[in-house]
Design a protein around this nucleic acid. Structure first.
Length: 876
DNA sequence: ACCGCCGGGTGCC
DNA sequence: ACCGCCGGGTGCC
């Protein structure tokens, strides 16, 4: 029997005040921004306060210098080994001091002071990145030469050259150099020609191939799950299990390391050490969504439970595996444990809040009922922080938010304990190296490390670094070595670099897509999925209201166009579009405050209120906003006076680092901390209740839906449907005719308590007669794990901003376990904003299919695109 | 010799 | 460091 520790933490998990932080942002999609081509605008490189953009760096030239003072330090260097140059401004003898460290971070010496003087200036002012390779490092007693490469932005090149010249140094030009990339390694002799930077399109297709081309010949071995696994594994899941177990029990040297005369050499950096580099006991399981990453991981935990042996099924045979059972209050009833047992025993699983319950369900589903396992949900304000208690668990489940907030605390128990295994679910969550949750994850101590993700590379190669760093793959734990040995060489199209990257990825990841095959058969055989668009014509009365709102909005937007202030009134434009979209569904949806624009004469209170309304509009417009700074879902959203929304911590950091003249990362308007307006806590759905007072009326779309539903019921009364909308109020309105026509239905909202969600899903998935045949589903509801395979029909009531968000929603029923063909009907109002949205969707789709992240547009191109889209949306 | 030269002491920043 | 540099000893041929 499974024993979850369902104490107050569990209750907290189920309670309503949960979900507050995920209400707006369930997807990692970029739908909101993509609608207006914002994503290009939002690329990290343009955001001040984040890391220096090393991608656009060019090689200024190279210079031979000297490392001195070797005899005072322990760090040693081989021939052709890379070294790191690090400023040491607090050095007592020379404020210009520049340290030289080897790959392991041990100091080797200093740069000679004459050279350190200009270097200090260049480094401190970030005019260039200076990298070193020691051509002859062995057997130097006092000094050694170092070949330095200077990389920076073109516009800083002259300043760097001048500064060096002032001190009597001159860079050797890059073209004549042997050091095109400053890379060490065996291939370090001169390439015949200068490296050519790859185009974005080329890179995109190469990245795609990286993961798609993995010839998984060596990963076809299958392994049965341990007895404790209660679910039979599919062939591809047995392969995943075999691969994961072999990774955990591997004794091989990590990739790019060789043993040579009792030394371990890293072939990328030429670093060598006596100590054996730790084998990476883990990796990245990058299977597509729906192939069962969770099940594979559960199977791994049970099958490779301890010492390469599975968790025994019979009770209490060996003292080592005596487990404890917890009551509902978390008190320990019996704990017996062999004290001589060595090492940690606990697996820590970190996931987004939205899939936490999925993990719990899956454990219950897939572990044989007679197996004892302690699972503790580390969540909620009353979670136990007792290390003795926690370290006795078999499994601890927690979320990235908890992990990150605990990390800030000095006595963070998660970071004090050593774990047998850490699993990061939706591991791309840590793609941003500056995010707190990334730092928190990287600082966990674990013997075995796993990353589960369906999208290992989301935007660029940069995304991979945090993942590799988490896996503790030497020397990539340090960003400099990752950048020098892989990222930059690949970006520059250097010979062999892509091959190296591919070898690396192949070594540590397993990825199968839905279309992958095993022995000629597809991994998953899914029934067909058909999408139909059903056009709806508004009634005369509806059309009248629509037209008047449209004309009014069009007039306002035309005015902005004439004033040239469209983008400044972005939120207002969105507001117009939103109201039109609502009117396409039902006239009662459009009761929003017409958000008036901010005027100079506004009192601070009026301004505040308007900004709050705008923020609510942006957050609730069905577009999942991302923070332009961290590129993650908004955490504590705040709105600036220029009406742009960011995470509060992110924007505060920007203001901090740029003071006294901080500017908005999106529009360069002046920014002040005291001008940021926070989102007030949400009032519970009182607005819906208010609408309940109004007399119910139907709408063209509702009629079309009901017609289809009744038709369908005549054909087959057992068929189950999802009715999806971005507007929960609309779903509420649909309830009335459903009841009248005698449909049994259930409902799933983003804001529902965990317990209610589970109930709604379970009742819907139930196949008994009398169970609900319809689920009202808000587009945002639920995480990727949501399984609604009982449905074979989907009615999408209104188009989403982002086609990907729609697809994701369809995948909730078109996934493993679906036995019937899935038919999707999209209702689109003729001659309306919805049709225009479809057009833009189509354009976006084509663009996304053609080239990776499209082409980088200039700021003015981006603006023009946005303007064009606004125009086409409201027929201007 | 307010120099040159010699040879010992010495050594990062 | 089998160097450079420093500073004391020294001083015609």
């Amino acid at each position: 029997m499974l024993s979850f520790c369902r104490d107050s933490a569990w209750k907290y998990l189920q309670s309503t005040h949960l979900g507050g932080d995920r209400t707006y942002s369930h997807y990692t999609s970029r739908d909101f921004s993509s609608q207006f081509g914002l994503e290009d605008f939002l690329c990290t490189d343009d955001i001040p306060g984040t890391d220096e953009d090393t991608d656009s760096a060019v090689l200024f030239g190279t210079l031979r210098g000297n490392v001195v003072g070797l005899r005072y330090y322990t760090g040693v260097v081989n021939n052709n080994e890379m070294v790191a140059l690090q400023r040491e401004p607090n050095n007592l003898y020379d404020k210009n001091a520049v340290k030289v460290n080897n790959v392991n971070g041990n100091q080797v010496g200093h740069i000679k002071k004459e050279l350190a003087a200009p270097l200090a200036y260049i480094m401190d002012n970030k005019l260039a990145i200076v990298e070193g390779v020691v051509p002859y490092g062995a057997k130097n007693a006092f000094t050694m030469p170092v070949q330095m490469s200077f990389w920076g932005k073109e516009e800083n090149k002259q300043t760097v050259l001048d500064k060096l010249k002032m001190h009597g140094f001159k860079l050797a030009p890059p073209s004549k150099s042997n050091w095109v990339s400053g890379r060490a390694g065996p291939s370090y002799s001169a390439p015949g020609h200068a490296a050519v930077q790859m185009t974005t399109e080329q890179l995109k297709s190469e990245f795609d191939k990286l993961f798609e081309d993995l010839k998984e010949d060596d990963k076809t071995h299958e392994m049965e799950g341990a007895e404790a696994v209660g679910t039979p594994l599919l062939p591809h899941q047995k392969q995943a299990l075999a691969w994961m177990v072999s990774r955990e029990n591997s004794k091989e040297l990590p990739l790019f390391w060789e043993e040579k005369n009792s030394f371990y050499y890293n072939t990328l950096t030429n670093f060598a050490e006596k100590e054996r580099p730790e084998t990476v006991l883990g990796g990245i399981l990058a299977d597509d969504m729906g192939l069962g990453k969770t099940l594979a991981t559960i199977a791994l935990i049970l099958t490779n439970f301890h010492d390469g042996k599975p968790l025994p099924v019979e009770k209490i045979k060996s003292d080592q595996f005596v487990t404890s059972i917890f009551s509902g209050t978390g008190s320990v009833q019996s704990v017996k444990k062999n004290d001589s047992e060595e090492g940690p025993r606990t697996t820590l699983i970190i996931c987004p809040l939205s899939v936490l319950s999925n993990w719990i369900d899956q454990f219950e589903q897939h572990i044989r009922p007679d197996v004892h396992l302690n699972i503790y949900v580390y969540y909620g304000p009353d979670r136990s922080k007792d290390p003795a208690f926690l370290s006795k668990q078999d499994i601890i489940l927690t979320t990235y938010n908890i992990l990150a907030s605990d990390y800030g605390v000095s006595d963070s128990v998660l970071h004090r304990l050593k774990w047998l295994r850490v699993v990061l679910d939706e591991g791309h969550t840590i793609r941003n190296p500056n995010a707190q949750q990334t730092k928190a994850a990287l600082n966990l101590e674990a013997q075995r490390r796993w990353i589960l993700t369906g999208t290992p590379i989301q935007n660029s190669l940069k995304d991979l670094w945090s993942l590799l760093s988490f896996l503790k793959l030497k020397p990539f734990t340090d960003r400099e070595w990752w950048h020098r040995t892989i990222q930059r060489p690949v970006m520059l199209g250097e010979q062999g670099a892509l091959r190296r990257l591919q070898a690396l990825i192949k070594n540590i990841t397993l990825r199968r897509t839905k279309t992958s095959k095993i022995k000629g058969k597809p991994v998953l055989e899914l029934p067909e999925r058909k999408i139909f668009i059903q056009h709806v014509t508004l009634t005369e009365e509806e059309r009248k209201i629509y037209q008047s709102v449209k004309n009014e909005g069009k007039a306002a937007i035309s005015r902005y166009f004439n004033e040239g202030t469209v983008l400044a009134h972005y939120a207002d434009v969105l507001g117009v579009v939103l109201r039109l979209r609502q009117l396409c569904c039902h006239p009662h949806l459009c009761t929003n405050t017409s958000s008036s624009s901010c005027q100079i004469g506004d009192t601070p209170e009026e301004l505040r209120e308007k900004l709050v309304n705008k923020m609510k509009l942006i957050l609730s417009s069905g577009s999942d906003e991302e923070c332009a700074i961290c590129l993650d879902s908004l955490n504590l959203p705040v709105i600036t006076h220029c009406a742009h929304v960011f995470c509060k911590p992110c924007i505060c950091e920007v203001i901090q680092s740029e003071q006294p003249n901080a500017k908005c990362p999106l529009c360069r308007n002046e920014l002040r901390v005291e001008h940021l307006v926070e989102c007030p806590p949400e009032e519970s759905d009182s607005s819906i209740e208010k609408k309940g007072d109004r007399e119910w009326i139907s709408s063209s779309k509702i009629n079309a839906l009901m017609h289809a539903l009744i038709d369908l019921r005549k054909q087959n009364p057992a068929v189950k449907c999802l009715i999806v909308s971005q507007f929960t109020t609309f779903l509420s309105l649909i309830e009335t005719p459903l009841k009248e026509s005698g449909f049994v239905f259930t409902r799933l909202n983003g804001s529902m308590a965990q317990k209610k969600r589970v109930q709604a899903i379970q009742s819907f998935q139930d196949s008994q007669t009398g169970s609900p045949t319809i689920m009202l589903l808000s587009l945002k509801a639920g995480g990727v794990g949501l399984n609604l395979t009982a449905a074979s029909r989907v009615f999408l009531m209104d188009p989403a901003w982002n086609p990907a968000a729609e697809d994701q929603c369809f995948d909730r029923c078109h996934r493993l376990g679906q036995k019937q063909d899935v038919v999707i009907t999209k209702f689109i109002v003729k001659n309306s904003v919805e049709e225009n949205m479809l057009k833009i969707q189509k354009k976006k789709r084509e663009l996304a299919a053609g080239a990776f992240a499209a082409k980088k547009l200039t700021v003015s191109e981006v603006k023009q695109t946005k303007i064009n889209e606004i125009k086409s949306l409201i027929d201007l």
